[in-house]
Simulated scan of single mutants.
Amino acid sequence: SWAVFFLLLWTSGEGGKLLVIPIDGSHWLSMHPVIEKLRVNGHEIVVVAPEINLRIRPSPIYTLKTYPVSYTKEFVEAEFKQMGHRSFVPQPFLEKLSKIANFTSMFLDSCKRLLSEKELIQYLEGSKFDAIFMDPFFPCGQILAEHLSLPSVYFLRGLPCSLEFEATMCPSLPSYVPRFFTHSTDHMSFWQRLGNLLATLGSSLACSVLYSPYDPLIREFLRREATVPELFSHAAVWLMKYDFVFEYPRPLMPNMVLVGGIGCTRENKLSQ
């Protein structure tokens, strides 16, 4: 259950063993302090990451296992820089979606490489982990969780197409909750609500296109039919990196925990 993770995080004594599947860049920067806390409490941590990355480095607080990928470091740097630049430039929805598709294709290739590393998979199978801590923007972590029969804990700000609410069956009514890229607030006119509904339907279709390439990979590795949203629905707990006071009012499911500000640096006290 999801309680396993909190027992690992906040208790010391006999340490547990945690498998971590992160994402590079700012996602890793916010996850790293949590990993440090886990290590301080005496838990053993194994991080699995592509050998080509920007920020995930060997560390005494965890064991780093890497796997080869087909892309270069220059390609990764260029993609992250472009993504950061585009975040501050207004763009049409379809153009933003195409940029997300570039990342998902890179993650798909990375996932194929990871799951084909038989020696690494055998190591993970024999390591007897207690849980898996992951960023679901890289769906491969959940595929591994299913294969290893581990409870999964997600650490995220959000997913494309608001998939986190679909996967948890959390109510997210388009009449009240504005969708990303619509520039609407929670006070919408009739036409804005209608546009929000169309955006919801369109994003659902877009998500099926983004994640459908994983279906053959899931079928081959898990030897059963499943989709990425279906696998996401098996997550034990969702640690959401935002604060309720900064979001529009909306319901949350019991396994969705708000941890906004968890990655913020603690400042020193002011001197007198």
Rank of each mutant, 00 (worst) to 15 (best):
E125T: 13
R113Q: 14
I143D: 04
E117Q: 10
G202Y: 10
S184F: 10
Q192G: 05
M169Q: 11
S189G: 14
L159A: 06
S208K: 13
C140D: 06
S208F: 09
F137K: 01
S203I: 03
P174N: 11
K112T: 02
R157Q: 08
W191C: 14
S184Y: 09
F107S: 09
S98Y: 05
N102C: 09
F138A: 13
S116T: 12
F133Y: 14
F165E: 03
L150Q: 10
K99L: 13
C161Q: 01
C170Q: 12
T168E: 10
A199E: 15
Y123L: 12
A167R: 03
V209P: 00
P90G: 05
T104C: 00
L194H: 05
L205F: 15
E164D: 14
V89I: 05
V209L: 15
K99F: 08
T182G: 11
S189C: 10
L97K: 08
Y123P: 07
I121V: 14
L144T: 00
A167P: 01
E166Y: 06
S203T: 10
K99V: 08
L163Y: 02
T182H: 05
Q192M: 08
F137P: 00
D135F: 04
Q122V: 07
T104N: 12
S203G: 07
K118M: 12
Y123T: 12
I121F: 07
H187L: 06
K99I: 01
A167G: 03
S105L: 05
V89R: 00
L108Y: 13
F107W: 09
G141Q: 10
Y176L: 14
L205C: 09
Y154R: 02
C140I: 03
E166Q: 14
L194G: 04
Y154S: 05
S110W: 07
M106V: 11
D130C: 03
L115A: 04
C140W: 05
T200I: 05
V153Y: 01
G195I: 01
I143N: 07
N196S: 11
F155K: 00
F93G: 12
I121L: 10
M106C: 07
T185S: 15
E125W: 00
Y123M: 11
